[in-house]
Design a protein around this nucleic acid. Structure first.
Lengths: 336, 336
DNA sequence: AAAAACCCTGCAAACGTTTGCGAAAGATAT
DNA sequence: ATATCTTTCGCAAACGTTTGCAGGGTTTTT
């Protein structure tokens, strides 16, 4: 029962008119008589005509497709973002090509190359953890393809960006810990070449300074997974002047800390306060439930996609915008 | 410093040879002299030539792109699957177009239409919760586009399918509970029109029967979220003959049960055993950590994509395969 | 009655690529 | 010397679509 897709030529042949006329009839061009239009539309509907988007894109040199490069699809925050992106892309009649860098610089480069080759209309990207060279992104820009970074942005390149308010979020979280009695607060972070790490560290430091607390560099560690946190935390808890608060770069890491603290038979939140970042699926599964900074991934995705579509559609010109998505504290059981 | 993408024609013009020669030179065609090949390759490399995949797809009427339709991106299981799909698609040099039905039948239909219009080489799909009419999928098949269902499959259409072994997974989980001493086991399920619910219920029932335990229908409830579980569980725990084991349709639900049980001051796993399903992010965040049935979403995605690519590449013909991805028990702290 | 205006439609080129076929040039065989 | 083969390349068509331009026909204007 197979009926392959019909083309404009087929319609023309069947109705004994030229492809140009069919094309115009389908677009309701004023030049075409109503009777012809009716005939064409009837035939098109009957045989379920769908324009070949490939040919269309080639002709128009405008591919209604955007590419998204994300470090890990399988991560609550990023999949929330993806969901938001898909939403607005869909509303704007754009397809989304999904690329996962899997935190590999090489794959990220391959992804960008593939997207350029596909002539996507625009690219949304979040940097891989290990990316320090940005030539492949510069190449996107050089190819005249609009580019918007989200979350893991890169400041070496002038583009639009959408970020979470890392500084304020971190500041607020640490301030909350201090206000509820914490005096020595550790900070577990992702590698510091990432902007999110820098910004959150600044928020952390400024909060400490505001309340006259001294910064102990030995309490600032690179650690962003549950597993690492479980490994490095016991040593820190064992010190004579152990911290009484932890601010973690994400919920996984916070959960690892939580685990280690319980194992050390310290009470939460009486002895130790813990603050995560993200409000992912696992935050409420922890016991006590995790206090964390809500990141609004879905909103972030929507914002980034809107920015990109505006750029593609020529709504915005020139200036690069720097959208900041607000965060807010969610206080649960791991803080007083 | 913008250098738009260069084409084969450009190379031809620059080197004063025809586009055909350039094309053949790039593909290392034996008809072309080595000197010409060298010149072309040198120029192509210098000006960073990338074949226009749109033109290529049009010419070859073969679009190296597959479409994926998923109910919710923002769901650990589905995003794991997506990750697996992306992995093998990437290895096979395919792009992935991501569509989210958001559990809306209308959007699912729109998604299929868009994928057909894009002339994707193949489609991977998991049904929306409310889909009961499958015409849009039949249309994909009628358009000669290979189609593979995963997880939420549809039995009205003959295609390849990849599913998790729900029956065995459920049977094994309940059997484990029984073997470790549980005598009254409750089952919290998704609505029973879904295949996964039916299959798991069968596994649950058969396990009870095998060990001569009576089935108490009042212990079989429709409940598949954390919030619902927290609401309905206290009542069940309050009964004179309360259950001593719970089997939940997913980890969120299991986490809700865990919460309610702790609140009721019952000990886990001594008084109550709990089994989840999925092994999502939150399983290890629970305290005690959740015993659960591992679903291998990533493997499922890889399998589905492999099946599809084989179909596209003509490796497999005719017969539809029905791949079943094995599950396995992960025993942690919520069971004895 | 001729000129102008209008309505409708088709031709052909273009987007970038591949590929069957033919051809010019040189090399080899008779 | 002619005939045949080989090497290397270009022509042109094709994929499906859009669009500027021109042309044929009919109606209106003068």
């Amino acid at each position: 029962m197979n009926k392959p897709q019909i083309t404009i030529k087929d319609i023309g042949r069947a109705l004994d008119i030229s492809p140009s006329t069919v094309s115009r009839a389908l677009k309701n061009h004023p030049d075409i008589s109503q009777s012809t239009k009716d005939a064409v539309n009837k035939y098109a509907k009957e045989f379920n005509y769908k324009p070949n988007t490939l040919a269309l894109s080639l002709r128009m040199s405008r591919n209604n497709t955007i590419g998204v490069i994300v470090p890990e699809i399988n991560n609550y925050f990023f999949s929330s973002i993806l969901s938001g992106i898909e939403q607005v892309a869909n509303e704007g009649d754009f397809n989304v090509i999904l690329c996962q860098s899997s935190e590999s610089y090489e794959k990220e480069v391959r992804n960008t190359q593939a997207l350029i080759a596909t002539r996507v209309s625009g690219v949304l990207a979040s940097l891989c953890k290990h990316t320090t060279n940005y030539d492949h992104f510069q190449e996107i820009i050089d190819s005249d393809i609009p580019l918007v970074f989200f979350d893991r942005i890169c400041i070496g390149i002038s583009t639009d960006r959408v970020v979470v308010d890392d500084y304020k979020g971190a500041f607020a979280a640490v301030e909350y810990l201090i206000q509820t009695g914490c005096k020595r607060i550790a900070f577990y972070s992702s590698p510091f070449h990432l902007e999110i790490s820098k910004n959150r560290k600044n928020g952390y430091m400024d909060a400490l300074r505001k309340y006259g607390l001294t910064v102990d560099e030995s309490l600032i560690r690179v650690c962003d997974t549950r597993e690492e946190a479980i490994i490095i935390t016991p040593e820190i808890l064992d010190r004579p002047n152990r911290p009484d608060g932890f601010f973690a770069i994400n919920d996984h890491c916070a959960a690892g800390i939580l685990y280690a603290v319980k194992l050390a038979k310290l009470r939460i939140p009486q002895d130790i306060g813990i603050f995560g970042f993200s409000d992912g699926e696992l935050a409420k599964a922890c016991d006590p439930m995790l206090s964390t900074v809500e990141q609004h991934g879905y909103e972030m995705g929507k914002n980034a996609a809107k920015l990109l579509l505006d750029k593609i559609n020529g709504v915005t010109h020139g200036q690069y915008t720097n959208k900041i998505v607000k965060t807010n504290l969610i206080i649960r059981g791991t803080t007083r």
